[in-house]
Simulated scan of single mutants.
Amino acid sequence: MDKILGWLLLPFFAISFLGSLVVFEVIQRIAYFGFGYKAHKNTVDILQLCIMNSLRLGGTRFKTLRSAQKVPTDRPIIIISNHQSMFDIPSIIWLFRKNHAKFVAKKELGKGIPSISFNLKHGGSVLIDRKDREQATQAIENLGKYIEEHNRAACIFPEGTRSRDGMLKPFKTTGIKTLLQHSPSALVIPVAISGSWELLKYKLKPIPFGVKYKTQILPPIEPANYSADEIVQKAEEQIRMALGQENTEI
């Protein structure tokens, strides 16, 4: 039934989603080249809301649970999140819009995708070549320095690739350690995303109706109290527990 309803609502999603990407490709360029970073950032935030509303037209329901501890805006933030679909990025940008979230993304996303590629190239995120370890490390170092200087947020998906069935993959530590080294005053915020993988279970043919997309912003980890390895372990443990996968073998 979710597939039948998905097909019925697919035209509404497609028109809204693709239309938003095309329209905001133009708006971003005007904002960035004509008015600078702040105007561009505001347009990017609005784009994320439009993308999420496109999913709502297809029956997706969003739920956000937040830790009792507020996310500060007066220090850099390192967001450590699991990764289930391409729609994780709009959700994180929107939820952390006050922190100006930037991403570590594969270089392939930096070209050919309306709105998305332009934002990744010009909005402060970094594109890495996963086959070029030296380039990737340097890009992540630059991102760490950037958020340290501007009190902004860097989001990293330490699984390395998205989970196609929702099961958390073991975390890779190098990227997180590099960010921590070059943003020593950053606070680490683990984020657990569930349900996102279901949006792509039919490979957009169609998006199933009624997906429950939940984001949990978990209690922060103060890096000063732990080693880099302990921080990664604690973040992974928190996310596994939030996903109900704490007994999954690492």
Results as ranks from 00 to 15, higher is better:
residue 8 L to R: 15
residue 8 L to T: 15
residue 12 F to E: 04
residue 14 A to M: 07
residue 17 F to A: 12
residue 21 L to A: 09
residue 24 F to Y: 13
residue 24 F to V: 07
residue 25 E to L: 08
residue 29 R to I: 14
residue 35 F to E: 00
residue 36 G to W: 08
residue 41 K to Q: 13
residue 44 V to D: 01
residue 52 M to S: 05
residue 56 R to K: 11
residue 68 A to Q: 09
residue 72 P to F: 04
residue 72 P to R: 03
residue 76 P to S: 09
residue 78 I to T: 12
residue 80 I to E: 07
residue 92 I to N: 04
residue 92 I to T: 11
residue 96 F to V: 06
residue 102 K to Q: 09
residue 102 K to S: 08
residue 107 K to P: 01
residue 109 L to I: 14
residue 110 G to H: 11
residue 118 F to D: 05
residue 127 L to I: 14
residue 129 D to F: 09
residue 131 K to F: 10
residue 131 K to P: 01
residue 145 K to N: 05
residue 152 R to P: 01
residue 153 A to R: 02
residue 165 D to I: 15
residue 165 D to E: 14
residue 169 K to I: 05
residue 170 P to A: 04
residue 172 K to W: 03
residue 175 G to C: 00
residue 176 I to W: 10
residue 179 L to A: 07
residue 180 L to R: 11
residue 180 L to K: 12
residue 181 Q to M: 04
residue 184 P to D: 05
residue 189 I to G: 05
residue 192 A to L: 08
residue 192 A to K: 14
residue 194 S to V: 13
residue 206 P to I: 08
residue 217 I to P: 01
residue 219 P to E: 13
residue 226 Y to E: 06
residue 229 D to E: 14
residue 230 E to D: 12
residue 235 A to N: 07
residue 236 E to P: 03
residue 236 E to C: 12
residue 239 I to E: 01
residue 242 A to W: 03
residue 244 G to I: 10
residue 247 N to F: 09
residue 248 T to S: 06
